[in-house]
């Protein structure tokens, strides 16, 4: 587009300001993780790796990390299966109620997490025990809770892909004598593979990061990484270790973005 040089400069400055706004806080967490002081103060008084060593030795944080990966893996796996099934039903078939379902299906991400969280907590602790199913609050309830929103993420990614890819390829495959399974394996699946990967990664990331629904659906025994961070934030002697874990999470977040970039032809369309 032809913009006046002045407009270009203004846009560039605005962009830099927005990027600074996005990155300065993250950068400060990284810098602060090398601050030897117990109490975080600005500017840092020196440089030290003492809190990094303390954090790497911290078994609580390590167990919480493993718990988070565990929950995210299960929630993503269930969401991939169920989410793509709904996506196929909505994109490939005409049926009564299709429009209302496609509106209802986005509710878990359109409604605030706290509503999902309190609804599920209420169901798990008050309603289910009444009908004889008392599973209590634990890892399973966290996985179920995370699946509700992971499912929507997978659905959004897959349905967008199916809407762009036409069904005529599948029809051609069937006309040429392939069975339903062969058609799925050789024609349909390759078309949606990258959407499944993108949706799955995003679902995994959201589950990994989730705190609100997790706090409400987890009993006292479950400690995912966000819950560990939250519980240790307020303890003054743990604050520097939390800071290091936070810095580590920021550094690790570059990895999924890098892979998402490589996988996707349309990187910004994440389907959130």
């Amino acid at each position: 587009m032809t913009l006046s040089p002045f407009a270009r400069v203004v846009l560039r400055v605005l962009l830099l300001l927005v990027l600074a706004f996005m990155y300065v806080p993250l950068l400060l967490v990284l810098i602060n993780s090398f601050n030897p002081n117990q109490v975080a103060s600005w500017p840092p008084k020196g440089f030290s790796l003492v809190w990094w060593e303390a954090a790497l030795d911290n078994t609580g944080a390590r167990d919480a990390l493993i718990e988070s990966l565990h929950v995210a893996a299960w929630a993503t796996a269930i969401a991939l299966v169920l989410g793509s099934m709904i996506a196929f039903a909505i994109a490939r078939y005409q049926w009564f109620g299709r429009e209302s379902i496609s509106l209802l299906i986005v509710l878990p991400i359109a409604l605030p997490g706290i509503v999902t969280g309190v609804a599920l907590q209420n169901a798990f602790t008050r309603v289910l025990p009444e009908i004889g199913i008392d599973i209590g609050l634990g890892l399973i309830t966290v996985i179920i809770a995370h699946t509700t929103f992971c499912l929507v993420i997978v659905f959004n990614n897959v349905v967008a892909r199916l809407r762009r890819a036409s069904a005529s390829m599948e029809e051609a495959s069937m006309d040429l004598g392939a069975s339903s399974w062969q058609t799925f394996r050789l024609v349909t699946f390759p078309q949606v593979r990258s959407a499944l990967l993108a949706g799955g990664m995003l679902a995994f990331g959201l589950s990994f990061d989730e705190i609100i629904v997790t706090q409400l659906a987890a009993g006292a025994g479950v400690q995912t990484l966000p819950i560990w961070i939250f519980n240790n934030l307020s303890r003054p002697n743990q604050a520097p270790v939390v800071n290091v874990v936070a810095a580590l999470v920021i550094l690790l977040s570059v990895i999924p973005v890098y892979f998402a970039q490589r996988l996707s032809d349309d990187p910004a369309h994440t389907g959130v």
Binding site: M22, L26, D209, I211, I229, A246, V249, I250, T270, V272
Partner: peptide, 12 residues
């Protein structure tokens, strides 16, 4: 650069 903050934890 727009995507990285989305992946960095909410709590962090």
């Amino acid at each position: 650069m727009f995507l990285v903050p989305l992946w960095a934890s909410y709590l962090v």
